Computed example of a mutant assay.
Amino acid sequence: MQLTLDMPELKRLSQPTPNLLAYNLIVICRSAGKDGLALLVYVTEQIPEQGYRGRVVILHNEPGVLSNACSI
């Protein structure tokens, strides 16, 4: 007996993987949402797989909050 499942996430995994070794610096922008977290998890999984040894910066942006340096 063979079980067949329709799993769209498997199609996503078959997409080309970005070559992290082409970059000296990777900046990941986060705003505490699920998309930013998913990207962070994906990149941190790719770092050891690809042997990336450059810098990774996570830039946190809190939507709706202005910096003290901003004047309105």
Rank of each mutant, 00 (worst) to 15 (best):
G64F: 00
V57T: 14
I26R: 02
V43Y: 00
P16F: 05
S14F: 03
V41I: 13
R53T: 14
C29E: 11
G33K: 09
E45S: 08
V27D: 02
D35V: 10
R12M: 08
R12A: 15
V56T: 01
K34G: 09
V27C: 11
Q50Y: 11
I58M: 10
P16G: 14
R55C: 01
V41A: 10
R55N: 07
H60V: 15
V65E: 14
I58F: 15
I47V: 14
Q50K: 03
V43S: 00
Y52A: 01
V56D: 04
Q50R: 06
R55Q: 12
R55Y: 06
V41D: 02
L39W: 06
R12G: 08
V41Q: 06
G36K: 05
Y23E: 04
P63F: 02
L21W: 01
G33T: 07
L10C: 06
T17N: 07
V41G: 04
G51D: 07
G51K: 14
P63H: 04
P16V: 05
V41R: 13
Y42Q: 10
Q46T: 04
G64I: 01
L39Q: 07
E62R: 14
L66E: 13
L20D: 03
H60Q: 12
R30T: 09
L21Y: 12
P63A: 02
E49F: 13
L21P: 04
L21A: 08
L13A: 09
L40P: 03
P18F: 11
L25R: 11
K34M: 08
L20Q: 13
G33I: 02
E9K: 10
L37M: 13
Y23H: 14
R53W: 07
A22I: 01
G36R: 01
N61T: 08
L66A: 12
R55M: 02
G51H: 05
G33A: 08
D35F: 03
L39S: 06
K11W: 03
T44H: 15
A38L: 13
R12L: 09
G51E: 11
K34F: 08
R12K: 15
L37V: 14
I58Q: 14
Y23V: 03
